[in-house]
Design a protein around this nucleic acid. Sequence first.
DNA 1: TAAATACTTGACAAAAATAGTGGGGATTAA
DNA 2: TTAATCCCCACTATTTTTGTCAAGTATTTA
Lengths: 136, 136
Amino acid sequence: MNFSTKSRYGLRAVAQIAIAQEPLSLQIIAQEQDISLSYLEQLAAKLKKAGILESKRGKYGGYKLARDAHQITIGEILRALEDDMFPIECLAAKQQCGKEADCLTNRAFRKIYEGIKEVIDNTTLQDLLQESKEKI
Amino acid sequence: MNFSTKSRYGLRAVAQIAIAQEPLSLQIIAQEQDISLSYLEQLAAKLKKAGILESKRGKYGGYKLARDAHQITIGEILRALEDDMFPIECLAAKQQCGKEADCLTNRAFRKIYEGIKEVIDNTTLQDLLQESKEKI
DNA sequence: TAAATACTTGACAAAAATAGTGGGGATTAA
DNA sequence: TTAATCCCCACTATTTTTGTCAAGTATTTA
């Protein structure tokens, strides 16, 4: 039970992009985070595909947010990065309830995932940015 | 971001033990879950060490709950099984807030872990058992 | 005593996930 | 045209997870 580095690197990248006002190149982000450009490119591709980032090629190109920060939840970001997060549907499907112990176990995990969803689907990037400003 | 099978097998084992009224042997649980006895023994050892299960050796021995079901939270169970769940302390410690993006990212994960804690520390085995009875 | 159980330790192995690397191509601003 | 950038795909290496197997020891009930 842990978040992969994909999530950490990816979320941090989105944060850097959100904070920067102009398109930010992956090179700069990769340097700051001390990870390989190629790896970061994979993450950026996922984020773009999910409609979170948009890119501009060529010189002075880079990435910026595809939408306003208050329209992006951290749930969207994490789900874009992690390949199969939150198997809630899966759990729901398997709930034949033939065996009481299985049923109980599934319900426990479902509760947890719902708790996670509650947080990540109701926290926007804007919320986090605002808190950062307040607390620093 | 996923729970390991350890958590699933372990929680299910605890559920089976809770449902059974008499000491339940690992052999039976292993058969029902179709995993090796050795593996289950490893999980049971953790649960015993955490004060969740207690054992009785010898013929007609087995495992039963060490405490009443309403005094056991799923948080206790999962923490006993997963080796290093919820790095909240770690996150808190690293919060130097030198870089805004890092700070923001850490806060995001902290929120999520707090959401998880909220659920698992406030859901007891008894809660789950009761729901099972209602829903079957 | 014999059988069933928990308990211990350690080695091992297969599979999956994680964390990347490498090479080349496409696009754009200057 | 050139340099900076995104973009794409295949591949590899490492680590973690997920177990299994073995060879015993200790305890309890009948």
